[in-house]
Amino acid sequence: MDNLVIAGKSYASRLLVGTGKYKDFDETRAAVDASGAEIITVAIRRTNLGQNPDEPNLLDVLPLSSYTFLPNTAGCYTLEDAVRTLRLARELLDGHSLVKLEVLGDPKTLYPNMTETLRAAEILVREDFQVMVYTSDDPIAARQLEEIGCVAIMPLASLIGSGMGILNPWNLQIIIENAAVPVIVDAGVGTASDAAIAMELGCDGVLMNTAIAAARNPVLMASAMKKAVEAGREAYLAGRMPKKIYSASPSSPVSGVIASSKDKSV
């Protein structure tokens, strides 16, 4: 089996999905099902005070027993907020330690603040969290995060929610080449071909939310992404043919072509 292994646990699906931005919980569940994802991200937020106490909860729709939950630190701009959020997440999810760390640098680009990210990763690893970390596509930062003990390196392909695809495949290749832990593209995927390209580059997985949730038909896009990730992975394992400007060797036999009036041999 060609499984994705993160922190010693094996997953058949290499597609990880977020659960935000859906119309309602029914659509969230249908999209998650269609994606085949086993790891799903959730955010940690203050409860609404004084609202309907019987308001449905995400965990009623996506039960803890059916998925590996990946609580994130979306919206955190300091290491203190990120660490506090994940401590709360661990308590909320009964001691679950696999987490997604992201410390953002600015609300316009949502680009990661790598100084804060590195410091937060150190604290979390010391507290026995298994840290999957959102990072810039800087190969040095990626290496430092791995040295700290992060269990997966998750570089952006382009900005969060931008759908711009993979803007710097060369940096991703360097990160993949250097990393001994899984490299998962997180952010920037816009459509199925982007996910396939990430996998063909040798990424171990792809994490996405907006590309599915903001599609006109999210459930159909989730299914497309599942296939794209599988196709890209198989293409990577198969090893693509070399690129060349033109080929002197056609796929069909050169000899035995029926004679034409232009045939010089007649």
Binding site: G18, T19, G20, K21, Y22, F25, T28, T41, V42, A43, I44, R45, R46, T47, N57, L58, L59, F69, P71, N72, A74, T85, L88, A89, E91, L92, L93, I160, L207, M208, N209, T210
Partner: peptide, 24 residues
């Protein structure tokens, strides 16, 4: 959670009560 039944809240305490919500 094991400490939820221990009296501990005093005037001026700052509490955060959180849940899991949809997110990427």
């Amino acid at each position: 959670r094991s400490k939820f039944d221990q009296p501990m809240l005093a005037d001026g305490d700052r509490l955060e009560i959180v849940v899991a919500v949809g997110g990427g």
